[in-house]
Design a protein around this nucleic acid. Structure first.
Length: 207
DNA sequence: TAGAAGATAGGA
DNA sequence: CCTATCTTCTAG
């Protein structure tokens, strides 16, 4: 068996988000004692290149780590509740990354279950970006950390995954969330992939 | 300084 | 369909 090294992961992450995202499928992310096999991801390009990206308008206090270059971990608070995880790719200063949307828990199952008591089925433990962050015990303190340098590590798949599907990104408003931006990738037919939801707008709804 | 919107999840 | 919950950004 060929084992992937941290260097292999860094090499992959140095590419563009669109090429990195599908190749992260099947990779195992370990955070402390919980390991997750990634089954669903989304690519986000950098400053000025992707209206749906947090980095689109340039660096701010929140998204600063997105500009940290390949291997940086970007964690942000979503809707005041959920912690979502991105793996930054490309060169420093660009601002591109891959949002981790779902996965299957393959290690530390008991810990993950205790963190997600409302999950009635193990496949729901990390089905969706908020749930994924919760199951892994991700904290805002993890923002800006680096793969392999702290408690977060990535191992690439030893064998290639099977069929991969692509489609519009979830919850992204406007044109960047449409069919012209099929930048969400998932392992076809995998039960841990989240269900698609179009972007919603609360104030001035039903537009 | 205020107000709206947001890469969501869970419940009715 | 509605709401929880709070940070971030933008306009004035």
């Amino acid at each position: 068996m060929t084992e992937t090294t941290p260097g292999d992961a860094m090499r992959l992450l140095s590419g563009t988000a669109l090429e990195v995202a599908p190749r992260l499928l099947g990779a195992v992310l370990r955070v402390g004692g919980v390991s997750l096999r990634l089954t669903e991801v989304e690519a986000y390009l950098g400053e000025g290149a992707d209206p749906g990206s947090h980095a689109h308008r340039g660096p701010t206090a929140r998204n600063a780590s997105m500009f940290g270059g390949a291997g940086t971990v970007y964690v942000y608070l979503s809707y005041g509740i959920h912690r979502c995880v991105n793996l930054v790719c490309g060169p420093a200063g660009e601002g591109s990354g891959v949002l981790l949307r779902a996965g299957a828990v393959v290690g530390g199952l008991e810990t993950a279950r205790s963190r997600r008591p409302t999950s009635r089925d193990d496949r729901d433990l990390a089905r969706g970006p908020g749930r994924l962050g919760s199951a892994l015990g991700i904290d805002l303190a993890d923002d800006g950390s680096h793969l392999g340098a702290g408690r977060i590590a990535l191992t690439l798949p030893e064998t290639p995954v099977g069929a991969v599907s692509a489609g519009p990104r979830v919850g992204v408003a406007g044109e960047a969330g449409g069919a012209d931006f099929p930048w969400r990738f998932w392992i076809t037919d995998d039960p841990t992939v989240s269900s698609y939801r179009p972007a919603v707008r609360r104030a001035g709804r039903s537009g």
